[in-house]
Simulated assay, not measured.
Amino acid sequence: MNRDAIRLDRVVRTFGTGDTAVTALHELSLAFAAGTFTAVMGPSGSGKSTLLQCAAGLDRPTSGSVLLGGTELTGLTENRLTRLRRDRIGFVFQAFNLLPTLTAEQNVALPLRLAGRRPSRAAVHDALARVGLTDRARHRPSELSGGQQQRVAIARALITRPDVLFGDEPTGALDSATSRDVLRMLRGMADDEGQTIVMVTHDPVAAAHADRVVFLADGRLDGALDAPSAEAVAARMTRMAATPC
């Protein structure tokens, strides 16, 4: 049985105070098994991005606990949390966020350099090899396609061999064919390397690459689908959209 890579227990996240307070997550309990690929879906405003940010240690819950493996994140100091995110968590966004003046290999090495560590050529080469871009190591972002840029961004997130790779709409800026290529690559990382992946998406086709889809509605868990098909995910999202709040 897979252990949990990430576990959220009764997590509440409230923004603001008093009459203007908005609760984005309502006592949410959810676990992501190590070595699995999970998609997170739900209507706009359902709490998907807040869930991702709390799970990744980018935001602190108002109450409840978040565990990365056996490490409780919510009690860590800001310095310890920063080190944990740097060493054990990878994050990929819809925007590639590559530095235009740096080559692919320099962009991949950047997190280690910012941490005061000298990246080895072998580690950078390995990260690029994992995303199939060793032949583009010396190219700058302007010389790469959108899909290649996102692969560099994924390699940059993988350079520290993180426990969990989080993606916030990582294929949202890509065309459908390129999106499928990136998703197949992520699927292969889970299958072949045991990489734990948690991805927020609005696209049923993207979600169908995951082992499981969890659905959020109004900051609460609203069910899950195992071994999802794009058609089943789309039908579930349609039902959720038709259900009155």
Rank of each mutant, 00 (worst) to 15 (best):
G75L: 12
T101V: 14
D181H: 11
Q150M: 13
A173K: 12
D175C: 11
F166K: 06
R60W: 11
A104E: 11
T103H: 05
V182Q: 04
E143S: 08
Q149H: 08
P141G: 07
L186N: 08
S120N: 04
A157I: 02
Q94C: 07
V131A: 06
H139D: 03
R140W: 07
V182I: 15
E105R: 15
R156I: 02
R161W: 13
T103K: 05
M185I: 10
L174S: 05
P61H: 10
R80H: 10
V66Q: 07
I159L: 15
A104L: 05
T82L: 10
T101S: 12
D175V: 09
L84Y: 04
R184S: 14
A173N: 15
G172W: 08
L174T: 04
Q94G: 00
P170Y: 12
S65K: 09
N97G: 00
L98V: 02
S176E: 15
V131R: 03
L99S: 03
R117N: 01
A127E: 02
R60L: 14
G132I: 07
T160H: 14
L114Y: 12
A137V: 03
P111V: 04
T77R: 14
N97F: 14
R113E: 13
G69F: 06
H139S: 15
D163A: 13
E72Y: 01
P119R: 08
F166I: 06
R117K: 11
V108P: 03
L84V: 04
P111F: 09
T74C: 12
E105G: 02
L112A: 05
L76H: 04
F166Q: 05
A137R: 13
D168W: 07
R80F: 00
G116M: 10
R117Q: 15
R138P: 01
R151F: 02
S120E: 12
R85W: 04
T134N: 13
L110Y: 09
S145H: 03
L144S: 12
H125F: 00
G146K: 07
V164E: 11
R121L: 11
A122V: 09
L133T: 02
Q150T: 11
A104K: 14
Q106G: 02
L112P: 01
R130K: 14
G167K: 13
F93L: 12
V92I: 10
N97S: 09
T62G: 12
R117W: 04
T77C: 02
A95R: 12
L67T: 15
A177Y: 01
L114R: 06
R184F: 06
L114D: 06
L84W: 06
S63M: 11
I154N: 04
L73M: 01
A95Y: 12
L174Y: 00
T103G: 07
L73H: 00
A153R: 08
R161N: 13
A173Y: 07
Q148L: 06
G116L: 05
Q148E: 15
A155K: 03
M185R: 06
I159K: 08
S65G: 11
D59P: 00
A123G: 01
L112D: 00
L68G: 01
I154W: 02
H139R: 13
H125N: 14
T77V: 02
G146E: 13
P119A: 08
R118I: 02
S65M: 12
A123S: 12
V124D: 09
T160D: 08
R184M: 15
R184A: 13
D59G: 02
L183N: 14
A155P: 02
P170K: 11
T74L: 05
L81V: 01
S179I: 12
S120M: 07
S179Y: 08
